[in-house]
Amino acid sequence: MNDFSFWVILSNLLLATRWTIALSLVAFVCGGIVGLALLFARTSGIGWLTLATKAYIEFFQGTPLLIQLFLFFFGVALLGVEVSPWIAASLALTFWTSAFLTEIWRGCVESIPKGQWEASESLAFNYIEQMRYVILPQAFRIAIAPTVGFSVQVIKGTALASIIGFVDLTKAGTMLNNATFRPFLVYSLVALIYFCLCFPLSWYAHRLERQLHAAR
């Protein structure tokens, strides 16, 4: 039974880690793109657009990510379309990420002084031009640290995708445990690998934050 050596366990976990990284990247990049579009809608000042964006954000921030994964996995199937765990997990994590990034970035946009809006407005800029040339370049600097910090949450969030059958690091851990009956060893290694992915990011986010404060 115990012919699984330590190295076999570790190498299998590392192979599954590729999928954790892939899902994290997809969620973070696509979530960032959707989040940027939502940011424009959220700060546009157009009533119905702001309201719709708020509702979207409230939904994804106010329900558990696991339930969102279920909704995408089982819900889309109801429409007669077969979705793989990979697609369902990518979609759910993308929307979930976008909701949080929009809120983080909105805070950064709103911290730009009102005078910047007024000056660009009186120079005949429209809203998109104001954002593009005046507000976002300044908000970007402030946004880097919390955005990198949030990427850690995305990586940890991907662990839930294992429940709908996506073979990521966590799912591989579960499978290896079923085969080896060495839960403590297996899950310790799983935790260690997650930590090795997340720690450099949170360390980098802290460093960026310190730099930003020093620059002020």
Partner: peptide, 17 residues
């Protein structure tokens, strides 16, 4: 309208970047 009317503010409001 705004092309036609320039404005200067008390707090300058230059773009710092």
């Amino acid at each position: 309208l705004r092309r036609n009317v320039g404005m200067v503010f008390q707090q300058f409001n230059l773009f710092p970047h």
